[in-house]
Every structure is written in structure tokens, then in C-alpha cells.
């Protein structure tokens, strides 16, 4: 990853740095050279933080979430972050650094828990806080409601959205929705950051000929995502950061590193063109309008048990049929999870995601 980034950094093409600040957990300390890199961007107020493991919608408040917040406080005492972000969803893993984010039912309970957690993140970092849209969805209803749910979630902290355009493209493809129809369902005035990334195709074993697009972040940026980028920029009046995202395991060959470089240059040229239509000046602050009050962390034990049961089913199911049978006879059946309406190929995909990440990164 760093080898791929080095030419871009040396040529001063990188105008800001987004740091996944919680993936360093298992090291004793940040390496000195990396600390210097973060410090350089921090001093220019061009450093932003991106969390991976907080598990925003966990029904139970976990001790690890307290540790995560303390780690965030420490990072914020060391570096100046222009904003902090996390992922939408709950993590499937029982261990805090395992699993993948999956969707949750959009209910009053999950809304209250999400708002409670976002307030705690804001209290820890004292800078704008945002959430990234999730690529994975169980059904078309999930896809169509995610934008408005994000808007409600972010309202108390006046937070913002990272609009991951590859995640959006996954949904456009997987549920055959036109871009113009889906983009209008997102509160684009809340978009402060855009993610540009690649992914991979997965052939469904259930539906011959159907290919599922997944946000595996291990390949080049598709031309379609750059097209979405060009279309979306003018619709986001408070956009500030555009971030190229790719996992290191997709950057092992010389060719893949060259492609990463080329993709960044393409992204930056689109940004340069867009900047000709913008003018320097203050951008939206995305800070709470009034003081936030924190009581005890909100919890929903029923939701937590359903999340654990779902994760266990997905991580251990030997086949799609087994997973579907277990879901329909689980405590999730007949509830707001609406497992009866889940798209068969997406259950198949959820099994693959959960089983891929259950051992952690």
C-alpha cells in the first residue's frame, strides 16, 4: 500500500490524508516515520480519521467500544483531525477486530442507539463526525431507505456523510436501480467526503448468470465509478474531501501499483476540473447546533441477541439453503429484520462476507 502511495506523496499530488486510526491497535506504537507523515498533514489541517471497528449499531454497549473511544481521544490529543468517520452497520465478529459490517433494521431502537453512539464519538473527538454509506443490503427496501435513515441518524450531531460511490454502484447494479432514482434518496447536502474505490464480481450459484458486485476494495476503479463521480460532484454543495481507497492486498504487483497511481491521477484531474467551478471560502462546519447530553449508553438486548444469532448463522452456514432455513426459524423471523423478504443472492453474499472476514483482517 505504502509503495503504491509513495510516488503520489513524493510528487506532492496528495492534498490530504485519511488515516484508518483504529487498525493500528495491535501494534505497541505508531512507527516514527508514519508519525511524521501524520504530523505533517495534521499541521496543515489536512488529516482526517476513518474508523473501522466501532460497530455503531451493536445492541449491547461493549467494553471494547469504551477502549475505542479512549484510543480516539488519545489520537485526537496527538494529531489535529479535520473530521472523524465510521461505517454504517454492525460488525459480525465476536472479537472486536474481526467481522464485516452488515445492515440493521431501520427502527426507532436502532435509530436511538446509532444517535447515542455518534454523540459519544463526537464527545471523544470534538470535531465533525460522519458515516459512510454501506454497500451491502438484504433487500431493495434497505437500499431505498438508507439515505433517509442516515439523515435522521446524523441530525442530532449535525453530522455528515461519506458517499462511497463504489458502494452506491454496488447497489445500483445488485438491485437494478437507475442512478437518478437512488441518488435523490440521499441527503446530498450532508456529503462532505466521497470515496472512490474498486471491487470485484461474484457469480451467484443460486441464480445462474446473475453477478453480484462487492466492495472488496482490491481492484482498480471501474470507469462507471468515475462516471458516477463526475455526475455526483455538482450535487454535493458541501463536499470537501475526495479519497482514493484500496486495500493493500490488492496492491501486490507492479501493475496494480501503476493502476493505483493512474486511478489517483484520474480522480485528481476530475477534482481539478470541479474546482474551476468552485471558489475558495468557508465550507459547512458540520458541528452540533447545541450542547449534547450523554447519559448511560443506550442498549437493546433483544437486538444484540438477534445480531449475534445472525452473525453465527452467516459465519457457520454450510450452504445457502441451510442459511435461509436457519434465518426463517431464527428469532429474527417475523420481526423488523424482515428476513422473509431478503434477496436470495444477497443472503448468499452475506454468508460469503461473514465467512471471509470472521478471522479478521
Amino acid at each position: 500500500m505504502l509503495e503504491a502511495c509513495l510516488p503520489l506523496l513524493e510528487e506532492a499530488r496528495v492534498e490530504a490524508l485519511e488515516w484508518s486510526f483504529d487498525v493500528l491497535y495491535q501494534t505497541a506504537e505508531t512507527p516514527a516515520w508514519f508519525h511524521d507523515l501524520l504530523t505533517a498533514f495534521s499541521k496543515e489541517e489536512r488529516l482526517i480519521g476513518h474508523g473501522v471497528f466501532f460497530s455503531l449499531f451493536s445492541g449491547r454497549w461493549l467494553p471494547e467500544q469504551d477502549v475505542w473511544l479512549q484510543h480516539l481521544r488519545t489520537c485526537c490529543a496527538t494529531f489535529h483531525f479535520d473530521h472523524i468517520t465510521e461505517h454504517f452497520g454492525f460488525m459480525t465478529g465476536t472479537d472486536f477486530h474481526q467481522g464485516a459490517p452488515l445492515n440493521i433494521p431501520y427502527t426507532a431502537s436502532t435509530l436511538a442507539i446509532g444517535q447515542d453512539r455518534l454523540k459519544r464519538i463526537y464527545e471523544a473527538c470534538a470535531c465533525p463526525v460522519g458515516l459512510e454509506n454501506l454497500a451491502f443490503a438484504y433487500s431493495i427496501d434497505d437500499v431505498q431507505r438508507q439515505g433517509s435513515f442516515l439523515d435522521e441518524l446524523l441530525h442530532p450531531i449535525n453530522g455528515f456523510i461519506i458517499l462511497d460511490l463504489h458502494n452506491l454502484w454496488c447497489q445500483l447494479h445488485n438491485f437494478s436501480i437507475p442512478y437518478e432514482q437512488l441518488i435523490h434518496l440521499y441527503p446530498l447536502d450532508r456529503v462532505r467526503e466521497i470515496h472512490i474505490s474498486g471491487g470485484s464480481w461474484d457469480d451467484s450459484l443460486l441464480e445462474t448468470g446473475r453477478r453480484i458486485r462487492r466492495d472488496t476494495h482490491d481492484d482498480a476503479v471501474p470507469a462507471a465509478v468515475f462516471d458516477l463521480f463526475r455526475q455526483t460532484i455538482p450535487r454535493c454543495p458541501h463536499l470537501k474531501y475526495v479519497v482514493m481507497e484500496q486495500l493493500g492486498n490488492g496492491l501486490t504487483s507492479h501493475k496494480s501499483k501503476q493502476q493505483f497511481y493512474a486511478d489517483f491521477v484520474t480522480m485528481a484531474s476530475i477534482v481539478d476540473t470541479a474546482n474551476q467551478q468552485r471558489e475558495a471560502g468557508a465550507t459547512h462546519a458540520f458541528l452540533p447546533a447545541e450542547q449534547l447530553y450523554l447519559g448511560q449508553p443506550l442498549e437493546d438486548e433483544t437486538l444484540y441477541q438477534q445480531q449475534r444469532e445472525l452473525a453465527n448463522i452467516l459465519e457457520s452456514a454450510g450452504s445457502f439453503d441451510a442459511a435461509r432455513h436457519l434465518l426463517l426459524t431464527s428469532s429474527l423471523a417475523g420481526t423488523a429484520w424482515h428476513v422473509e423478504q431478503w434477496d436470495a443472492a444477497m443472503i448468499e453474499t452475506a454468508v460469503k462476507i461473514a465467512q471471509k472476514w470472521k478471522e479478521g483482517f
Partner: peptide, 13 residues
């Protein structure tokens, strides 16, 4: 506001 081009980093270390 001027847009800024950035990279996400962190996994590699």
C-alpha cells in the same frame, strides 16, 4: 470551498 484529493492509509502498517 476547494475540493482536496486524498488517499486512505493505515492497513499497511
Amino acid at each position: 470551498g476547494t475540493l482536496l484529493s486524498a488517499i486512505l492509509i493505515g492497513i499497511a502498517v
